[in-house]
Simulated assay, not measured.
Amino acid sequence: MKSKKKSIVRVFVTLAVMVGVLLGIMSILNKNKAANQAATAEVAKTNPAVAVRVDTAAVRKLDISHTANGIFIPKQEVSVGAETGGRIVSVSVKEGDFVKAGQTLAIIEGNKQNVNVANAQANLENAKMNLERYEAAFATGGVTQQQLDAMRLQYESALNNLKSAKLIAGDVAIRTSVSGIVNARKIEPGSYVNPGTIAFDIVNISSVKLRVHVDEKNVINLKVGQPVQVTVSVIPDKTFTGRITFIAPKAEGGLNFPVEVEIPNPGNELRAGMYGTAHFGKGQMEDVLVVPRAAFVGSVSDNKVFVVENGKAVERKVQSGRSFGDYIEIIDGIKADEQVIVSGQVNLFNNTPIQIIK
């Protein structure tokens, strides 16, 4: 019993100690808070306003051109394959040759196909004679209507088999469906191919496409058919002219939209795989409302600035637009001639008194 009372006493003593410690900590914190408030008030007396530098939102006539880098791709790129199986008898083109649409590039041995055509022709003639005999017998009642219909079906089947055999026999020639340059030849005379085997890669670079990515703030100014100046680093003394042929309706990662510019290339001077630069709106000037980039608190994408109102720094959310080096377009949130703070923002909160310095 005595041990139980001693345990209860120890618990109460422990609780009392803990409460005393907590009260002591709270007392110290309150004293520190009061001291900090007093120090802050004293500083506020001696430094009533934060020193800042400002600039003015203004409409400026700026060059609205922008550039985007990309890689040239061919106008057309086609893999030509064999439509029937067999041994390659001859190949009439080599890599680098120019070919026209419909041109024969290689021949597959056609003996087997010719035999199939002959067999199908013989089967058709036999089916035709049988059909004629059944038609004569039907006239005298020698066969039923069902037997005659079955023989007509055999004749139609034999006719279709002949047509199919002739089509296959005609496929012994490997032909290209597009004009262009033989970029790769994958067969040699004597090799065997199966139906679908890729034999040639044909690339058409009579015109090429420069595929670039344009951010959301600039893509809204582009239109299909718009002329574009294109430069190539490996041909520094020449500028090419193309037109926009495609603007993606959906952005890829980072809100960038694929855009294709087609450039005529009659001399094959430009090659697929080269790097190029598209100059959109080159030389175009436009009145744009801008503020200095330094006015933004954090990054431009945060869209936060401080404006001067009645001697105070007022936080303002804006909608930023295009970038023009040291200046950023303002679409919404600030009007022309408003003053924005460009230095000293680290010490500012909303409605902080400020002192403008030069």
Rank of each mutant, 00 (worst) to 15 (best):
residue 187 I to R: 06
residue 257 F to H: 09
residue 222 L to A: 10
residue 215 D to G: 06
residue 237 D to Y: 07
residue 102 G to A: 01
residue 174 I to Q: 00
residue 2 K to D: 12
residue 255 L to P: 02
residue 72 F to Y: 04
residue 309 E to A: 14
residue 261 V to M: 03
residue 95 E to A: 13
residue 62 L to P: 02
residue 107 I to S: 13
residue 231 T to H: 07
residue 148 L to D: 07
residue 275 Y to R: 12
residue 204 N to Q: 05
residue 153 L to A: 15
residue 358 K to C: 06
residue 314 V to C: 07
residue 245 T to F: 06
residue 306 F to H: 00
residue 256 N to M: 14
residue 126 N to A: 15
residue 327 Y to P: 05
residue 74 P to C: 05
residue 281 G to F: 04
residue 98 F to C: 09
residue 157 S to R: 13
residue 356 I to D: 01
residue 316 R to M: 10
residue 198 I to R: 12
residue 102 G to D: 01
residue 22 L to I: 14
residue 8 I to C: 06
residue 96 G to P: 03
residue 200 F to Y: 11
residue 338 E to V: 03
residue 308 V to E: 03
residue 195 P to L: 08
residue 220 I to Y: 13
residue 253 G to Y: 14
residue 150 A to H: 07
residue 304 K to E: 10
residue 297 V to D: 05
residue 150 A to M: 12
residue 245 T to I: 15
residue 66 H to R: 10
residue 103 Q to S: 09
residue 344 G to R: 03
residue 207 S to K: 03
residue 307 V to F: 11
residue 119 N to D: 12
residue 215 D to V: 04
residue 112 K to Y: 11
residue 38 A to D: 06
residue 77 E to I: 07
residue 358 K to Q: 15
residue 353 P to C: 02
residue 338 E to L: 05
residue 82 A to V: 03
residue 128 K to D: 13
residue 123 N to L: 08
residue 188 E to D: 14
residue 40 T to N: 10
residue 284 Q to M: 12
residue 21 V to K: 04
residue 33 K to C: 01
residue 171 D to N: 13
residue 119 N to V: 13
residue 272 A to T: 12
residue 145 Q to F: 11
residue 255 L to C: 09
residue 74 P to W: 00
residue 158 A to K: 00
residue 185 R to T: 12
residue 29 L to T: 11
residue 248 A to T: 07
residue 330 I to K: 02
residue 230 V to D: 00
residue 93 V to S: 09
residue 194 N to C: 06
residue 287 D to C: 08
residue 358 K to W: 01
residue 142 G to N: 05
residue 277 T to W: 04
residue 336 A to C: 09
residue 152 R to N: 05
residue 154 Q to L: 11
residue 315 E to Q: 15
residue 303 N to E: 13
residue 94 K to C: 02
residue 172 V to K: 03
residue 229 Q to L: 15
residue 119 N to S: 15
residue 54 V to F: 02
residue 301 S to C: 02
residue 297 V to W: 09
residue 323 S to T: 12
residue 61 K to H: 11
residue 9 V to L: 15
residue 107 I to K: 14
residue 38 A to T: 10
residue 273 G to L: 03
residue 255 L to K: 15
residue 342 V to E: 03
residue 357 I to Y: 03
residue 292 P to L: 11
residue 67 T to R: 06
residue 195 P to S: 15
residue 283 G to H: 10
residue 49 A to W: 01
residue 196 G to L: 06
residue 319 Q to E: 15
residue 195 P to G: 07
residue 162 L to R: 12
residue 242 G to K: 00
residue 11 V to D: 11
residue 77 E to G: 07
residue 309 E to W: 01
residue 313 A to V: 04
residue 267 G to R: 09
residue 157 S to M: 13
residue 233 S to Y: 10
residue 117 V to A: 05
residue 206 S to T: 13
residue 336 A to H: 08
residue 264 P to Q: 08
residue 21 V to T: 12
residue 39 A to Y: 05
residue 154 Q to V: 10
residue 112 K to H: 09
residue 278 A to F: 00
residue 47 N to W: 00
residue 176 T to H: 00
residue 92 S to W: 08
residue 303 N to D: 14
residue 318 V to N: 02
residue 238 K to E: 06
residue 283 G to E: 04
